[in-house]
Write a protein that binds this DNA or RNA. Structure first.
Lengths: 338, 338
DNA sequence: ATCCTCCGTGTAATCGATTCCACAAGGAGG
DNA sequence: CCTCCTTGTGGAATCGATTACACGGAGGAT
């Protein structure tokens, strides 16, 4: 593969001049410029990004560590992150933590070793020493979706509080009184917050959220199934199950189906995170929709701001309720979305 | 960030010795080794992968360019690729082409500039000059899922022929005679092959595949919707629509639903590529399932073989039919999977 | 005692870029 | 006609690693 030296030789100039042409530095004669460009063309030369990075100490690369690629919510997030980054001249390296703290650390370490310019993380846990060190060492960093309290790092996320209140209002309106939740891991902010928001919203209707109605899940389908079975085995099973993410909702649907029961007649179901497939499930699932694409874009902008020396601000966007049929039919209610 | 020089100074040895310890070269005294390791620990030193890559001319990184990240099939492929690569000591940089040849070229160029050790591609089109040059220049390369004829590059893919024959047998057994297909882009091998396999299988039952029953899609949901509407507007609409990928099947389902028709009573539906959501759609969708995870792993193994100087072989795995309810109920038939 | 091997270590070249500094040529101004 | 500045260019240092080569000392063989 041709190097800058080959181009210099071909064009009859020094490597310094070639470099100047490539980075369009002003003081290069028109003559030299055309000769260099011709040589570049002739040799099919492409600058070696590795060498360039070593010298300039910038890789123009962002690291994105997400909790689970197979979760459509994170897939969409990753996609919007890549798009915005590309628009701003950055590439993205994605690390999939699969909800495992050890894998998360593996990817963070790997990305740090590669000297990425900045790190976007949706943390799986409470934060390892590694991540703490990285943040303290000044690695530009932004949390997206989930965050870790006590880290002085900007956070880009959606606030589901209002949407969860809308959801509870909807459920209450349909006559449901025994509402249960499949929570995410307590180590994650989204795991805790969604339970809190739910409990708070219930409180407004004078409803309790008993311990028995809080199932501990891990954001994976299998845990949704397991927890739902537990709910159904209760002496007094809930009317509604609210899953804190889309995969656990899928597991819940499985569990209900496996018992030969029906949604929403025997058990109503709602989920946090809306995804295209929820329109096509049987029945279509009512969900709290996050502005996923906007979240990803805002996170990249915040991170690039930090990288390029501008102040980075935290961003909180609102989620909204999308009513479908999984909680029961109410003709009076107007659907916000099919 | 501490460099190898700092470690050398701290340990009271030369950088050469530090490097030898780090790459566990045999001729280092036990004493020097412990001192270096202590210094590494004390400084929290991590080798700069950029510098290392420049010197050794290897990045231990694989590039993966896929056609569409939002497609669950490719998401799963990407996931298995990353897993296997990690097991073999490589990282993966994913480029999402979104079925756009220009984006595909962008990512290939970017990955080449970064001097990745090898490239895994699921081509969106017939192959750009850029990719041809890269292959000719000797960049280790493997095609996965889709490939480009005329490239001397190993291919790892699934052969759906037998499964499509099973599908047609199943459809024929249910009494369906007018079978239509939503094809993928003719520029892709999977786009063409699936039509061919379908036509061939129909032939075995003395059935034709008329032009009007071949809809041109682009592997995206919207095209599935559009094509299906076209089918339904035909004077003699088909009994069954076979979508060449899962997203187009989703679009087809939308179109049928929008007309107030029912699957499978008014129109039966089958898809290429099985995904977890197909179990939960209304109705559950019959599909040709590829061994996606195995495909990804085999592709990585083939690529790493080439990179490390071993001969790389093409691999073809078999797909299998998964019968659900979207083509009609046949009590006599035994379901291979719920 | 002498010579030859190893063994462990350090010096310095190298990878492919960017960039500081020096310098030559040419034009403007006195 | 001589300075002074500007402009374009090249030489060489540099980024942080790896590794070929040289070298000094210890130990074994003769």
């Amino acid at each position: 593969m041709a190097s800058i030296k080959d181009v210099a030789a071909e064009a009859g100039v020094s490597v310094a001049t070639v470099s100047r042409v490539l980075n369009d530095h002003p003081s290069v004669s028109a003559d030299a410029r055309t000769r260099v460009l011709a040589a570049v063309e002739a040799l099919g030369y492409r600058p070696n990004a590795v060498a360039r990075s070593l010298r300039t100490d910038q890789t123009h690369t962002l690291g994105l560590v997400i909790s689970d690629v197979m979760n459509p919510y994170f897939t969409e997030l990753a996609r919007s992150v890549e798009e915005e980054a590309r628009a701003l001249g950055y590439s993205v390296i994605i690390g999939n933590a699969d909800e495992r703290p050890d894998l998360q650390d593996h990817h963070v370490r790997n990305l740090l070793d590669r000297r990425i310019d900045g790190l976007l993380v949706s943390p799986t846990d409470g934060g390892s020493p590694l991540m703490l060190d990285a943040a303290r060492a000044g690695t530009p960093m932004v949390f997206v979706d989930r965050w870790i309290p006590g880290f002085d790092v900007p956070v880009v996320r959606a606030d589901g509080r209002a949407a969860v209140r809308d959801l509870v209002a909807h459920l209450h309106g349909l006559g449901h009184r025994r509402l249960a939740i499949i929570a995410g891991p307590a180590a994650t902010t989204t795991g805790r917050e969604r339970v809190e928001a739910f409990r708070e919203a219930l409180g407004a209707y004078g409803l309790e959220l008993p311990e028995a109605y809080i199932g501990q899940g891990d954001f994976q389908a299998e845990s949704g199934r397991r927890v739902t079975e537990g709910f159904l085995d209760l002496p007094e099973p809930p009317d509604v199950v609210f899953a804190a993410d889309n995969l656990m909702a899928l597991g819940a649907l499985d569990a209900v189906r496996a018992r030969g029961l029906r949604v929403p007649e025997d058990l109503a179901l709602a989920a946090f995170d809306d995804i295209p497939w929820f329109v096509h499930t049987d029945p279509p699932i009512t969900a709290v929709a996050q502005p996923t694409g906007e979240l990803g874009r805002a996170a990249v902008r915040a991170l690039v701001d930090r990288i390029e020396g501008r102040p980075a601000r935290s961003v909180t966007l609102a989620a909204r309720l999308v009513v479908r049929r999984s909680c029961g039919e109410d003709p009076a209610e107007n659907r916000s979305h099919l």
